[in-house]
Amino acid sequence: MSHNQYEQQDPQEQFRSPQEQTGGQQSPPGETRKMPDTPDHGERTYRGSGRLTDRRALITGGDSGIGRAIALAYAREGADVLFTYLPEEEDDARETARLVREAGRTVVAVPGDIRDEDHCQDVVKRAVSELGGLDILVNNAAYQMAREGGILDIDTEQFDRVLKTNLYAMFWLSKAAVPHLEPGSVIINTASIQAYQPSFQLLDYATTKAGIVNFTKALAENLADRGIRVNCVAPGPIWTPLIPATMPEKKVESFGGDTPLGRAGQPAELAPAYVFFAAQESSYITGEVLGVTGGKPLP
């Protein structure tokens, strides 16, 4: 079972099945090196073709998981990258930075918490200053914590953290970025299958992801006359450090098994969707949601 970006393969068998994956329970936000089955970010397989040559991208949550895969793909497509990460994710951030540098592109790694509005504004300023401008904003960072009791187990502190990380930061970053985005620039948000098929254990998280879908559609209409496109990727179950860090062990053991393809997706399988939305080839697409869900339908 190996992933290759170009060779035709059976998608059911391309990566590990739930019976073969081991998460290794850990405390949030989770670290890649602590996962017995390390996610595939495209390190050995993603090959660029110059689709984002000399573009400047800001990616939140770029240290691991989907964010790392996006950073790697953008760099191999020719983009320079600034990414954000939590200070406790320093080890993962160093690896993402190494991958971008190895691709021959500029990388800026910025620690901090995007729940802080001043930090969000500073991140945008640094991207414009240190990359020489900004063409792509990827609002990817998110927080979740599954609660088996649903609403009765979700306290105000968690609810506040989820909304601030997933919704407020997206609003702050987008608002700060828009004055710097030239026509042809893009904003890409990360939603989730949870926006359409919510689990009560992730009530707060699902609520934010539904909000992200509507934010994307409204902002796309808002910014169309500026020539800025806004789109959204809605992942299904994806194998990242967030899973063993925020879900019960039994859920981790079966994670992704309920999809038609019968397995969790890998970050490397998400990156091409973000490349597509950032590239000029998607010039007539805005306000759209692309599901990468292993066959789970989006309405």
Rank of each mutant, 00 (worst) to 15 (best):
E43Y: 06
P39M: 14
A75E: 01
L52C: 10
A57Q: 05
D40A: 12
P39G: 13
A75P: 01
L72Q: 07
R55Y: 00
R68A: 05
G78S: 03
L58C: 06
R76T: 08
T45Q: 08
Y46F: 04
T60A: 07
R56W: 05
R68Q: 13
D40V: 04
R76L: 02
G61S: 08
E77P: 05
L72K: 09
G78H: 04
G50N: 02
R47L: 14
Y46P: 10
A71G: 15
S49Q: 12
L58G: 05
L72H: 15
L52R: 04
P39I: 05
D63W: 02
H41G: 14
Y46N: 06
Y46E: 01
T60M: 07
R76D: 04
E77K: 02
T60H: 05
Y46L: 03
G61M: 09
G50M: 09
R55G: 12
T60F: 11
R44W: 07
I70P: 11
R56E: 11
R68H: 13
T53S: 14
T53R: 15
A75N: 02
A79I: 10
G62D: 08
G67H: 09
G50E: 05
R51T: 06
D54C: 05
R56V: 15
I59Y: 09
G78A: 03
I59V: 15
G48Y: 07
S64L: 04
G50W: 02
S64Q: 05
G67F: 02
R47H: 09
G65P: 14
G48P: 01
T53H: 12
T45Y: 00
I66K: 12
R44E: 14
D63Q: 12
A75D: 01
E77R: 00
L58R: 13
E77I: 02
E43H: 09
S64D: 04
A79F: 01
A75S: 02
Y46K: 06
A69V: 09
I66W: 09
